[in-house]
């Protein structure tokens, strides 16, 4: 088992475990924290997959900014395990089963394909380097880049419209 494999399995366990903990935690604050753990694990995978830039962005944007926002809102609302609403147990089971089925179906479908068994991914490569991404982003992807601003504008307007108190 190479160091890559060890890292892979470690990160995988961390991601899946974190995800499960996030979903099952009663306290919303714990959920947020577990989700941050997942994000860190995924960032680790990004590095394994040679997507260093994304790994960094993921930690800054997701684990840093977005999750803090979530945490902030949760704190604002003063949520804890006591006032956490609980679903009907049957509905929970149904939800679990549905999610599990989804997983099973995916895996069953994909396992059949033999081509995928031999397809390997290695570490190393140029793709994820920031200069390459930056060049592409500002040439080929300039339209989405620019148009994203519209998205942000509208999100901003939305936050203003919805968030302003008193009207």
């Amino acid at each position: 088992m190479s160091i890559t494999e060890i890292l892979f399995w470690f990160l995988t366990a961390m991601a899946v475990g974190g995800a499960l903990m996030m979903v099952t935690s009663k306290n919303p604050v714990y959920s947020v924290l577990w989700l941050i753990v997942v994000f860190f694990a995924i960032s680790g995978h990004y590095i394994l997959l040679n997507a260093q830039f994304l790994a960094v962005v993921n930690i800054i944007v997701y684990a840093g900014a977005i999750m803090v926002l979530f945490l902030f809102v949760i704190m604002l609302m003063n949520m804890n395990a006591d006032n956490e609403p609980q679903k009907n147990i049957w509905l929970k089971i149904a939800g679990m089963i549905a999610g599990g089925c989804l997983l099973l179906v995916f895996i069953a479908a994909i396992r059949q394909t033999e081509a995928l068994q031999i397809q390997k991914v290695n570490t190393g490569g140029q793709t994820g380097l920031i200069h390459l991404l930056g060049k592409t982003l500002f040439t080929d992807y300039v339209l989405p880049f620019e148009i994203s601003s519209v998205l942000f504008l509208s999100a901003m307007v939305g936050a203003v419209v919805l968030g302003r108190k008193g009207d």
């Binding site: 148009i147 307007v157 939305g158």
Partner: peptide, 23 residues
């Protein structure tokens, strides 16, 4: 597909806001 995705999001996000406009 990226444009489709962003387009649809640009359509959707303001709609969420408009839906909740009557606060």
């Amino acid at each position: 597909l990226l444009i489709l995705f962003i387009g649809i999001e640009i359509v959707s996000i303001p709609l969420y806001i408009l839906t909740g406009a009557d606060k």
